[in-house]
Amino acid sequence: MSDDIRNVRTALSAITEHWQPHRLASINDYDVKVVKLRGEFVWHTHPDTDELFMVLDGELTIQLRDRDVVLEPDDVFVVPRGVEHCPKADGEVHALLLEPQGTVNTGDAGGDMTSTLRELT
């Protein structure tokens, strides 16, 4: 990756669809993604990787089978590999994700909400 500066807020302002992550930057074999979330996603797991969520704006609930984790602005939570989870946002949430390159947003669930990683322009 070059030394280009990316602004998180500017990147988020360019996103028009929910649940469609966009690559902000890459570091080693990981992607730093920004995404807007609203509503309930799908229950899924990532069998081979952890997934980091950082909430920038709004309130995000990460539903786990044994509890709910509520994240507010500036909170970070790591969903461990293999743990089934379902993100849910009653209002719009702006978030940053950190995942290995090639990680599919719906993990092992697939389906209509599966997104191809988009590049910010």
Rank of each mutant, 00 (worst) to 15 (best):
H18C: 09
V42L: 12
E59Q: 07
T61N: 03
P73T: 04
G111I: 02
H94T: 08
H18M: 10
E84H: 01
L97D: 14
G82K: 02
L120W: 06
G110S: 02
V104E: 14
L96Q: 05
T10Q: 11
H94S: 10
V35G: 05
F77I: 08
R118I: 11
C86T: 01
D29Y: 14
D57N: 06
D29L: 11
F53N: 02
D4R: 12
D68Q: 11
D48M: 07
V35F: 06
A25H: 06
V93P: 02
T103L: 13
V32Y: 05
R65K: 14
T116Y: 12
A109L: 02
Q63V: 06
M1K: 02
E92S: 09
I15E: 04
G91N: 14
D75Y: 02
V70D: 11
V69E: 06
G107W: 03
E99V: 15
V93E: 08
I27V: 14
D68W: 01
K36E: 10
D57V: 01
C86M: 10
C86V: 01
E92Y: 04
R81C: 04
L96F: 03
N7K: 00
T106D: 04
G111M: 09
W43F: 00
D75A: 02
R67A: 03
L12N: 04
V79R: 00
A14C: 09
M1E: 07
D48W: 04
L24S: 02
V79I: 02
I5A: 13
D48H: 08
N28D: 15
D112A: 13
E72F: 10
I15D: 09
R9C: 02
L64H: 09
L98D: 07
A11Q: 04
H18D: 12
G111W: 11
L117Y: 14
P73A: 03
T114C: 13
E84R: 03
Q101M: 15
T10R: 05
V70G: 03
W19K: 10
Q101I: 13
D29C: 10
H94E: 13
G107N: 01
D90C: 01
T114V: 15
L56R: 05
Y30S: 11
D75H: 05
E51Q: 10
E40R: 12
V70K: 04
D68S: 14
V55H: 07
A14S: 14
E40V: 15
E59I: 03
Y30M: 14
C86G: 07
S115E: 15
I5F: 15
R67M: 00
R65F: 00
D3A: 13
V76K: 10
E17Q: 13
M113T: 12
T116I: 12
E51Y: 09
